[in-house]
Amino acid sequence: MELLFAIMVGTLYGCALYLLLRRSIVKLAIGLILLGNGANLLLFSSGGLVRGRPPLVPPDGTVVVPPAADPLPQALILTAIVISFGVLVFAVALIYRTHRALRTDDLDDLVATDRLGEVSEAAHRPIEPVAAGVDPRSDGR
């Protein structure tokens, strides 16, 4: 079973990386989800596999009776699942706004502001309408 888990983790990471390397901005979001799942599974594996024995204190005792699944990775993953969901929602909202503003699905169209000394005209294209008579490239001085 351990081998199968390893293959599963590797597949999820590989697929996620492939999607992250795509230029399409939507695929980036799907890649993020896969990456989150892969990371959670890796974390889960770090506690070892114990089938069918959750870490619960039995009603008649005060301590968990081993063998039981490791509670610590589970607690970590719980946090991770929720946070990656928050990140995903933010990313999707950001992608939505970017798409609405710039009308592009191609990440390569978004590089202009990142590059030194060769900022193209397009990067200065104002997103919001400019009042008449004001040069959009001037910064107010």
Binding site: E2, T11, L17, L42
Partner: peptide, 23 residues
Amino acid sequence: AFVAAIFGGMMAGFTLLVFALEP
């Protein structure tokens, strides 16, 4: 795809390593 495959393979190996270690 090649880079992703290597990365996936590496992570799979890493998972096996995790299993092999005493928890």
